[in-house]
Design a protein around this nucleic acid. Structure first.
Lengths: 127, 127
DNA sequence: CTTCTGTTATAATAGTATTAGAACAGTTAG
DNA sequence: CTAACTGTTCTAATACTATTATAACAGAAG
């Protein structure tokens, strides 16, 4: 697996894992219908506990990015191309708002913010 | 003070406070050079502990949004209009990246993301 | 049927969040 | 000058989260 965990980060490792799995989906390394590794095998693979991987998976399930089939496994949900549900948009909005405000206070104007986001999107698709 | 804390939120109250102070600066309710209330008085005002307010202030100091003068008080830093320092840009980038990725996975295209951010910026300046 | 799956439960450890109380030393206003 | 106010530092208690460790359970899959 293409996961790199930084144990010394102040970001919990279950959150790092969840984040990198989302990134893998965004990059097309994981596509709709793909099965994720079992919590036990991925935990062994990454040298962490089964429950930590399980927590990351449930984080992704809560965001409806994967689906967990009890006693069976987890698979990547169909990603709605160029559509977004209102509740998802709401969550993204709540998550992103404080950062936008911080950016403004630190001196970024709307164009600069837009430019930053464009470069982030490019960096995802390229790397 | 124009602060509203939600004690039942899963966001720590020191983080809520820090966030709302940044927002107050973004809205111009607090401007460069303004003195923040003392940690004791704001804590009493909001019904929370002095140390919790202190933690929020140090969070803002870490982000270089305010300056804390030991044994004296905290004042709002000069906000660099339409300029942003590289290290600040770097931090904003790291903070915003996982959310952008989540937005993409949930079906937002670059235009939709840009539109969302524009509406957030508008909502800050209007309300 | 046996192995693999997520689920659930208990438990221990470490760290964070929040509150409390107190003392200390520099700042400031009367 | 002095008294009130300031952030700082310390100890300490409580609650919650994060992480790991075992173990047992019951459904899925070969």
């Amino acid at each position: 697996m293409f996961i790199q965990i930084e144990p010394e980060s102040d970001i919990p490792i279950y959150a790092q894992l969840a984040s990198q799995l989302i990134e893998a989906i965004a990059r097309g390394k994981l596509v709709s219908g793909d099965a994720l590794p079992s919590v036990r095998s991925l935990a062994a693979d990454l040298g962490m506990n089964m429950h930590t991987v399980n927590k990351a998976y449930h984080e992704l399930e809560r965001k409806e990015i994967i689906r967990i089939v009890p006693k069976s496994g987890a698979i990547v949900n169909p990603l709605s191309k160029d559509k977004i549900r209102v509740d998802h948009l709401e969550r993204i909005s709540i998550e992103i708002k404080p950062i936008i405000i911080e950016a403004i206070v630190l001196g970024m104007n709307p164009e600069a913010i837009n430019k930053l986001i464009s470069s982030i999107i490019l960096s995802i698709k390229e790397e």
